[in-house]
Simulated scan of single mutants.
Amino acid sequence: MSETPKWYVIHTYSGYENKVAQNIEKVVENQGFQDLIFEVRVPTETVVEYKDDKKREVERKIFPGYVLVKMILTDDSWYVVRNIRGVTGFVGPSTKPIPLTEKEIEDLGVEVKTVEVDYQVGSGVKIVHGPLEGFVGKVEELDVDKDMVKVTVSMFGRDTLVELQLGQVELSKD
């Protein structure tokens, strides 16, 4: 199959998110849908709660009533997921579910993209994406955790410090 898997949002009865996720995984395993349905997630976050003067960490659902599924949408995969007990439907028009966009996936933290860099502070780099594409500069600051690099580039005869994402620059071959 040439189509790539995408993330879809499934609406469930509130409180049934984990059960729905388990049932989807069970059906995938039992009926051999591993090539169509790849991953099932219930987005949660850990929250510190203070109750009766006691501090405790609690895991809460970020989107109660919703489950995320990474799958290739076919009639079979749609039918399997749609008919799991507790599922009320896909998010989107009833005839065709709409996948999440790359920006939504990134904002939700569903898939964390890691960028490995082969440059360091003091390295000469070339900007490969964005409005300054083609400029060459020197790395002044590097913050991998924040996906940020500060580069000094020469523009209009002056050195200017610009802040870019790690993926926007690469090690200069000059």
Rank of each mutant, 00 (worst) to 15 (best):
Y16G: 02
N18M: 15
N18R: 15
N18H: 15
N18Y: 15
K19W: 03
K19F: 07
V20G: 08
V20K: 04
V20S: 06
A21F: 04
Q22R: 14
Q22T: 12
N23Q: 13
I24K: 01
E25F: 03
K26S: 09
V27Q: 15
V27W: 08
V27A: 14
V28D: 05
V28Y: 06
E29Y: 12
E29G: 08
E29I: 07
N30G: 02
Q31E: 14
Q31C: 02
Q31R: 06
Q34V: 02
Q34M: 02
L36T: 08
L36S: 11
E39R: 10
V40D: 02
V42E: 03
T44G: 03
T44E: 08
T44Q: 11
T46Q: 10
T46W: 08
V47C: 05
V47N: 05
V47L: 07
V48M: 09
E49W: 09
E49H: 08
E49L: 08
K51W: 05
D53K: 10
K54I: 08
E57G: 05
E57K: 12
V58L: 06
E59D: 04
I62R: 15
F63L: 13
F63R: 13
F63T: 11
P64F: 13
G65A: 05
G65W: 09
Y66G: 06
Y66N: 05
L68G: 04
V69L: 07
M71R: 00
M71W: 05
M71F: 06
I72M: 04
L73K: 04
L73Q: 07
T74R: 09
D75A: 04
D76S: 13
D76K: 12
S77C: 03
W78V: 11
V80M: 15
R82K: 13
I84D: 04
G86F: 03
V87M: 09
V87A: 09
V87Y: 07
T88I: 12
G89K: 00
F90R: 06
G92K: 00
S94Q: 03
T95L: 06
K96R: 14
K96V: 12
K96P: 00
P97N: 09
P97G: 09
I98D: 09
P99V: 00
T101G: 01
T101C: 02
E102A: 09
D107T: 05
L108P: 00
L108K: 10
G109Q: 06
G109I: 03
K113N: 11
T114M: 09
V115L: 09
V115E: 08
E116H: 07
V117P: 01
V117H: 05
V117E: 01
V117A: 00
D118S: 08
D118I: 01
Y119N: 10
Y119K: 12
Q120F: 11
Q120W: 11
V121L: 11
G122H: 11
S123H: 11
G124P: 06
G124H: 12
G124Y: 12
I127L: 14
I127W: 12
H129E: 13
H129T: 13
P131K: 15
E133R: 13
E133W: 00
G134D: 07
G134S: 08
F135D: 14
